[in-house]
Amino acid sequence: MSLILDKVSYKYSTGTAYEVTALDQVSLKIEDGQFIGIIGHTGSGKSTLIQHLNGLLKATEGSIYYNGQDIYDKDYDLKDLRTQVGMVFQYPEHQLFETTVFEDVKFGPKNQGLDDKEATLRAYEALRSVGFPEDYYDQSPFELSGGQKRRAAIAGVLAMKPAVLILDEPTAGLDPKGRDEILGLISDMHKKTGNTVILVSHSMEDVANYVDRIIVMNDAKVYMDGTPKEVFGRAKDLEEIGLAVPEVTYLMMELKNRGWNVDVSATTVEEGKNEILKLKGMNA
C-alpha cells in the first residue's frame, strides 16, 4: 500500500511565452505510515506537488498510483481518493462555513455517504482527538479564537479518517504554544493510528522535531530526499537554494570548525544538549 509518483510533470500556460513548469519529472514513493516533511522555497513546487496527491491537479505527464491503481485511469473514482487522501489547506479556518462547529465537522463524513449516526460518532471522535473543548461544540465556528478555529478545521478533515493526511503549513499565523499543540496532536495521532502524514512547512526546527523523512523541493524538482540527519547534514546545499538548517545544527558545525568532536547531524535542542554535555564530560 503506497502512493507512487512516476515521472510526474505539471506545466501550465503551455504553448505561450509564459509557460511554467511547476513540477519537472518528479518520482517519489510514499510508503504507508511515514511522517514526511516537505520543505522548499516559495514557488519551489511544494503546493503543486501535494495538490497532485489527491487528484486536485492532473499531471500533464507521468502517472500516479495509489495502492497500485492508476489514479488517472478513466474508471478510477477520484472522489474516493479524496476521502482517503485528506488535505488540510493553508489557513483552513477560512473554509469553515456551517452554523455550529459540530455540524461543520460532520459535513465531511456525511458527504462520504455515512448515515447521520455514524457521521455524528466520527465528528465526536475527531473533535476529541484535536482536544477541542466540548463546551464549544454548538458554538458558531466564527466566534472562536484563531487556534480553536484551526483545530475545528483540522477535525473536519480527520472526521473522514483519511489514510493519508496532508497539511499545508498547518501552524502559519499561530503563536508558539498553538504551534506546539497542533504539531503535537498531529504527531500523537500519527503514532496512535499509524496513518501517513505529509507536512508542508517553512520551519526547519518543526520539521527536525517531528518527521522521519524530508523531501526538499527546488525549482520544480526533488532536490533532496532523506532522513532529517541526511538532509540537514548538507547545510551548504540547502543554503544554496535559500533554505537553512536548524540553529542547533549551525551551532554544532561551528563547534566542529573549532576542532571539537561533536556530531554535526544533531538537529534538535535535545540532541544538541546531549552533544555538549558529552563534550563537557558529563553524562546526558
Partner: peptide, 23 residues
C-alpha cells in the same frame, strides 16, 4: 515566557536546558 504561550529562540532554549543539566 512559556507560561504566556511564548517561546524563546532555539539557542536560548538550548542554553537554558544546559543550565538545568548543571552547566
Amino acid at each position: 515566557l512559556k507560561s504566556h504561550r511564548m517561546d524563546v529562540p532555539q539557542i536560548t532554549l538550548l542554553a537554558h536546558e544546559l543550565k538545568k543539566s548543571g552547566l
